[in-house]
């Protein structure tokens, strides 16, 4: 004869379980509520400084694709197109989004101004450190860290151990300290030259370029003050037959040999992962992350003219290869 098991009702009717049932029910409801809260689709407001800017468009597309179904609803606000940035304040009040993702400096400033207690996430903000940050502010930096830049330089041009760098201590002292430690790890020597009001750049360029294998032009507003300064740096480097390594494709026209910048779509994907972590209240190692992807332009033509070899095994990592055609 098959054994008969007690039904759930019978089990619950035992005196012991009768007494603990309300407690169990409460715990179960609590767990369910937490799960629902954690998994319910979020409402995200994307504030874009100008949707017609290609880089902003790319980063937004990547964000939207990566966040996927986690975002139940995405509301868009284009600062440029709206013509009335103050409309954002009303939109935030009306919609009460769970998170505001701001793309570009203008969007970030407005989101911070009108966002109240909502978490504000940013990307594509040039030199984000210049803005005041609140506790509910998170982001993906627009520039690779100097340590990343140095590692990729070592990867692409391994035969150039003496790296010259010009910086203004008011802007870059801390970053250069990190870079110095990283250079040591990579077996590189950082030959540093500081500039300030009393010691203008041209005074030092000849002596610096004599001591180095490559000039590393970092994003330092104290150094790259104007177009004339940039032209002076490239003109001296060319005269000394030294390649220039830098962070933006804008310098290709001046004759940069290697440019390593942040990869735009990766920033959007990183922002989406960070948004998810913020909404799930997961612990974050860093509230502002460096970009995880790189975009590399190698000017093989210029390197050839300077008789400088590059690492051919790194060619599959190069996005743009400029040859002398």
């Amino acid at each position: 004869m098959p054994m008969s098991y007690p039904s759930l009702l019978q089990t619950l009717s035992t005196p012991l379980l009768k007494s603990v049932a309300p407690l169990l029910f409460g715990v179960l409801c609590g767990l369910l509520a937490d799960t629902v809260q954690a998994q319910s689709p979020a409402k995200i407001l994307i504030v874009n400084s100008d949707a017609t800017v290609n880089k902003y468009r790319q980063v937004k597309e990547a964000f939207t694709l990566q966040i996927g179904t986690y975002a139940g609803r995405i509301i868009n606000f284009d600062v440029q197109q709206s013509g009335h940035p103050e409309l954002l304040e009303k939109l935030i009040k009306d919609e009460s989004p769970d998170l505001i993702y701001s793309i570009g400096s203008q969007a970030y400033q407005l989101a911070s101004q009108f966002g109240g207690s909502k978490p504000v996430l940013f990307s594509s903000v040039i030199n984000w450190q210049r803005f005041e940050r609140r506790d509910n502010s998170y982001g993906i930096a627009n520039e690779l860290s100097l340590t990343q830049e140095l590692s990729l330089l070592r990867f692409l041009l391994p035969g150039l151990p003496r790296i010259g760098v010009i910086y203004d201590p008011h802007f870059s002292a801390e970053r250069i300290n990190e870079a110095r430690a990283q250079a040591k790890e990579l077996g590189l020597v950082l030959v540093e030259q500081t500039v300030d009001d009393e010691h203008p750049l041209a005074q030092h360029l000849d002596s610096l370029l004599d001591k180095i294998d490559i000039l590393w032009l970092i994003a330092d507003p104290g150094v790259l003050a104007d177009r004339v300064t940039v032209e002076t740096i490239f003109s001296y480097s060319s005269r000394h037959k030294k390649p220039v390594y830098t962070y933006s494709d804008a310098f290709m026209n001046y004759g940069a040999s290697l440019v390593v910048a942040a990869d735009t779509p990766t920033m959007g994907r990183q922002a989406a992962n960070m948004a998810q972590a913020i909404l799930l209240r997961e612990p974050l190692k860093e509230t502002v992350q460096s970009p995880a992807g790189s975009h590399i332009t190698l000017n093989a033509c210029q390197l050839g003219k300077l008789d400088t070899r590059y690492n051919a095994d790194a060619l599959d990592a190069v996005n743009q290869l400029l040859e002398c055609h």
Partner: peptide, 21 residues
Amino acid sequence: IKLLSVPKDIDALMAVSFGMA
């Protein structure tokens, strides 16, 4: 698990070293 697609392997490895993944 959250996946983060980056352009190349060396980016992925450096993302771990520099704390982005």
